[in-house]
Amino acid sequence: MVVSKEEILHIAKLADLNIKDDEIDEYAKNLQDILNFVDVLNSVDTQNIKESIGTVNNSNVFRKDEIKEFGDRDILLQNAPEQEDNMFKIPKVI
């Protein structure tokens, strides 16, 4: 299997990344190298094996679902590249 130019551009679009024309080959090669490497998994028999999401025997640690005020609105907003009236500001979308 070979990763095509179209595929790299499709994946980049899904990931919200720009890939310049002169970078496509390198990204394709890197991805291809790793995909070849992970092909080793095809030799593992996983019939009747369940997926593991976590690692420690799946006991959920629950807490009450309560709203707690964070309190310090200013410190949250100070990291925003642009803000107005206590809100994050973005370009017009409609």
Binding site: L41, I49, K50, E51, S52
Partner: peptide, 26 residues
């Protein structure tokens, strides 16, 4: 991010991501 997006994308999810989670069990 490109590799991660690829293995989670439609058409490859089962072959890569789901397979990896099964081998994780093993």
């Amino acid at each position: 991010i490109i590799l991660g997006t690829y293995v989670l994308s439609s058409g490859y999810y089962d072959a890569y991501y789901k397979k990896a989670l099964k081998v994780r069990t093993i």
